Deep mutational scan, measured.
Amino acid sequence: DYYKILGIPSGANEDEIKKAYRKMALKYHPDKNKEPNAEEKFKEIAEAYDVLSDPKKRGLYD
């Protein structure tokens, strides 16, 4: 669930989505986080943001 990945409610607005994305992206960026699964988690976060930040894609997802 993209909302769960970003840690936001399904009714989140654009600003909340952007803030959550930035926070999670910094936390899991492969250059900052050396955990083995950090890169995979970072890709999931980027995919979630891509879908939820685009009103058309978000509409299809919801």
Rank of each mutant, 00 (worst) to 15 (best):
A46F: 04
G7T: 03
E47R: 10
D50S: 08
E44H: 15
P9N: 07
N33S: 15
D15W: 04
E44N: 01
K27L: 11
L52D: 00
S53M: 12
Y49V: 05
S10I: 07
G11S: 07
P55F: 10
E16H: 04
D1N: 11
A20N: 07
E16Y: 03
P55G: 09
I5R: 04
S10D: 13
K23D: 15
K41N: 15
K4M: 10
P30N: 09
I5T: 08
L26A: 13
H29C: 13
K57E: 06
K27Y: 09
A48K: 03
D1W: 07
I8P: 00
K41G: 12
D31L: 11
I17R: 01
M24I: 09
A12P: 00
D1C: 12
N33M: 13
L6M: 10
E16S: 08
L6T: 02
Y49L: 05
K56R: 06
K43W: 11
I8R: 00
D15Q: 06
K4Q: 10
K19I: 14
Y28D: 04
N33W: 09
K4Y: 09
E47G: 03
P55V: 07
R22V: 15
Y28E: 09
P30M: 09
F42R: 10
A46I: 06
G7M: 07
P55T: 05
P55Q: 08
N33V: 15
E40R: 14
K18E: 14
G59W: 03
S53A: 11
E35C: 08
K4I: 03
H29D: 02
G11W: 08
S53W: 01
I5E: 09
I8A: 07
G11P: 03
L6K: 00
K32S: 04
I8F: 00
E16W: 04
P30S: 11
P55S: 11
K43M: 12
I5P: 01
H29T: 06
Y3F: 06
K34P: 12
Y3Q: 03
A12T: 07
E44L: 09
H29V: 06
G11T: 05
N37Q: 12
G7W: 00
Y21V: 02
K57G: 06
D31H: 10
E16F: 02
E39R: 13
D54V: 15
